[in-house]
Amino acid sequence: MYAFDYQKPSDVDSAVAALKSEGAQPLSGGQTLIPTLKMRLNMPEVLVDLSGIESMKGISRDGDTIHVGAATTHGAIAKSADIQSAIPGLAHQASRIGDPAVRNRGTIGGAIANNDPAACYPSACMALNATIVTNTRELSAANFFLGMYTTALEEDEIVTAVKFPVPSGSSYQKFDQPASRFPLVGVFVAKTAEGVRVAVTGAGSDGVFRHEGLEQALSGSFSADAVGGVTVSSDGLMKDLHGTPEYRANLIKVLTKRAVQEIG
């Protein structure tokens, strides 16, 4: 680790002000950032800790929208009764991230700002057509996630909340990468008023994506058989030690089918 200054503001405005200084970077749960600091892969001059900002924490339901503060931990999302009943796929997704230590520290805001190509939440955001709220604007998930580790966030802009429309059905199926236990492929299926949405994480070489073929087939007939009829191409899918593009393509289908079966 290199030396850095540390600030812990208690509201969004002071956080944004602090982030204007040279080499400043937000710190949320630290579950991604701290390891990179320890390995000296990153050298911020100031860390602005967002965990003291109460307005960025917590979960509430407002009609057909679930509002999650960006500094809310995975553990809190997994245990939230509101989310468990309204979006069981999201509660389950949070419950499968890392281990208890990671879930009790890591936050949804940090996860989506980081946009790891194997992160879980981007799939929920895309499938549920979530709105990402920042200190300056609101963006649809599709406009927020711009590819591997890339988002629409500007300098000094922080995610403050995520708003999830409540779907009529949701399921997240995660197939673990054997080493990191991040998703080798994760598929989030949501049944919404506008149709079925299928978002895939862990597989695309450009990060999270929605699969049109699967969505169309499932919007026509919400059944495992409908999934069977779709061809999932391996083009543009990632290749690494743990999965070939072909294998990932297979998993996308299998996991989608299982999600459909779970939603019923």
Binding site: P178, H242, G243
Partner: peptide, 10 residues
């Protein structure tokens, strides 16, 4: 690994 076993089956 799952990939290897699946590839063999496939």
């Amino acid at each position: 690994s799952p990939n290897r076993v699946w590839s063999a089956i496939n």
